[in-house]
Structures are given as structure tokens and as C-alpha cells.
Computed example of a mutant assay.
Amino acid sequence: MIRTTGLTKRYGRVTAVDGVDLHVPPGVRFGLLGPNGSGKTTLVRMLLGLVHPTAGSVELLGAAMPRHAASVLPRVGALVENPASWAHLSGRANLRLLDAAGSGGRRRDRRRRVEEALERVGLGGVDRRPVRAYSLGMRQRLGIAAALLRSPELLLLDEPTNGLDPRGIGEMRELLTALNAAGTTVVLSSHLLTEVEALCTRVGVMDAGRLVLTEDLAALRTPTGLVVLRTRDPARAVDVLGRAVVARSGDTVTVRADDPAALNAHLVSSGVAVAELAAQRRSLEQVVLELTGPGADRVDPGRADRAGPPHQGDAVPVRGGVR
């Protein structure tokens, strides 16, 4: 679905993306993670042909980019950074213009596609007010609606939940999961670890322009060898378990154990009432923090600026998604 080889982008002496070899197979929900300034957005823009690489190559849907952009991009939906629009027009008018420019066809079919896209993102009841009067969350929903107009095989979304409230974030997660179940490959770039952990099946981590990890999420969240248990009698649990106890805090005891089920059986047979017991797993946050440095929005004494300007050089503006 996506394959890059040695993909690099330099802005003068600053390397924004550094030799990235990325493979995203069909059918996954892929999360691209990293601190601000790590190169995520520049990478996404190169995938879409909006920024030309300094070196390396990109294949999208099996075709070289940007050489075959005209045939590939109609099969791709995208939202890159802040959704663009004609601010003086309504959201519905924006989508009709985008659909007409991209697909042509009968007006009745265009109207149906626009209404379906608005319904899917929760804007089915939107009125005629201009987009400049929309909230940030409404603009974000409109940008995602634009990305869905053509029933894409691949969705590339940069910070798709930006500006959405908790209910909206949940609705967007459900929508993307349903689209993926219907056959759409979903790739989202984000620094919101909890959202990626809740949605994605595979992740890539970027730091200082490099792709430092690509792995299935389930494989990353392996057990740590520790078990956390809650009990009404923590002192008794500590006595029973002895040197296997790593820490105790209130009614919670952390124990070194390979088999949670055997540990539970041992405690129960020793008269310890166990309220809750679970194997401790590494969180996605732990993994990312271990692999990455501070983001580009942090300014420490003597620290060189690593992040290149995001809209410099040969970037091409885009309205409401890929056209």
C-alpha cells in the first residue's frame, strides 16, 4: 500500500526526513508517531507528492510517486495539517466544488456523495453558514468529509482529531475502524499516543527525521514480567510472596511473576482475597519516550534547531484533502 526507500528531505542544512524506509501493508490501521518536529508531516506530504524528496523513492498503491499522481491520488483520501477551504462558502458548497473538480459525473451523484460524506462525519444537519463561522472541530470534520468523498482505498490523515471534543474523538475512532473493516487502509500521523493506542494495529515511531521503529502494537505491548494486584490485605500478600514483591502502595502490590494465573491460585490458597490481578504491560507512551528525544517546540540552552520549516521549498497547497 505504501513503500518508501531511503526517503529524505533537506531544507538547506536541515534534514527534516532522513533516509526513511517505510512499508505499510494493505488493510492495517497504521499510526505514525513522534514528537513535534520529528518529520511526520513532511513525510506524509512527500507520500502525496505535495513535497518533492531530496533523495529516495515513494510508492503509493503500487505506483511511483509523484510520477503517477494523476492515477493514484483519486484513490486516496487525505487530510494534511489544518483543513483548507473556501471560507466564504458553506461546508456543503465546499464539498460540491471539490467533488466536481475531482470526479465530474452527474450532479445527482455528486450531491449524493457530498451528503453521505457529511453524514458520516456528523455534519449531516449543517446549515448554509460560511465555513469561517465554523468551530475548529467542525472544520476538522469537514476536512475529513472531503477526504471521504471518493470512497478511498487509502486514507492519510494528519492529526485527524485536532479540535474535536471527547465525544467527537470517539465518533472519529468508530468511523475509521468501520472504514478499515470495509477495506480501507488507514494511516494517521499524530502525537496523541492514547488515540493511536486505541485505534491502530501497527505503529511507526519517528525521531529527528528518522523512522526508529515499525512494529505491530500487540508485539510492542508485551508483558514486563511484573503483575499488579489489589487486595484488602496487602500486608498478608507481602508476607506470602516474600522476595517476589517489588513494590507496595496502599492496597496495590507489584510482584515479579511469570504466570499470573499461578500467582492468583497461590494467593487464594494462602487465604489472600484478591480483588484484581493483571500482568503489567509496556504502554505505548513508554515505548515512544524510550525511543525519542524532546520535540521541536522545546527550546533548551545550547540546543540546535533540528526541525526544518514545514512549508518551505516545493510544497504545494491543498484544499480540503487531495485533489
Rank of each mutant, 00 (worst) to 15 (best):
T4S: 14
G6E: 07
K9G: 02
R10M: 14
G12Y: 06
A16D: 03
G19S: 13
V20R: 03
D21V: 04
P26N: 05
P26D: 10
V28C: 12
L33Y: 02
S38F: 12
G39D: 01
L43Y: 06
L50A: 09
V51F: 04
P53Q: 06
G56H: 11
E59Q: 07
E59T: 06
L61C: 00
L61S: 12
A63R: 15
H68A: 14
H68T: 01
H68S: 13
V72R: 13
V72E: 12
L73Q: 11
P74W: 12
P74K: 12
E81Q: 06
S85G: 11
A87S: 14
G91V: 00
N94S: 03
L95S: 11
L98T: 00
A101S: 12
A101C: 09
S103I: 03
G104R: 04
R106P: 14
R107I: 07
R107M: 07
D109T: 08
R110C: 11
R110Y: 10
L118I: 02
E119S: 15
V126C: 13
V126Y: 12
D127L: 02
R128C: 01
R129W: 04
A133T: 14
R139C: 03
R141E: 06
L148E: 11
L149F: 09
N162R: 01
G163R: 09
D165V: 05
I169S: 00
I169H: 04
G170Y: 05
G170E: 01
E171A: 13
T177Y: 02
A178T: 14
A182S: 11
L188E: 02
L188Y: 07
H191K: 05
L193H: 04
L193G: 00
T201V: 07
D207G: 04
V212K: 08
P223V: 05
V227A: 07
R230Q: 04
D233H: 14
P234Q: 05
L241Q: 05
R243Y: 02
V245C: 10
V255T: 08
D258Y: 06
D258N: 09
D259W: 08
L263P: 05
N264R: 13
A265R: 14
S270K: 06
G271P: 02
A273K: 08
Q280R: 15
R281D: 03
Q286S: 15
Q286P: 08
V288F: 06
L289T: 14
L289S: 04
V299E: 15
V299N: 09
G302A: 09
R306D: 04
H311F: 13
H311D: 15
Q312D: 08
G313N: 05
P317R: 07
P317Q: 12
R319W: 11
R319K: 08
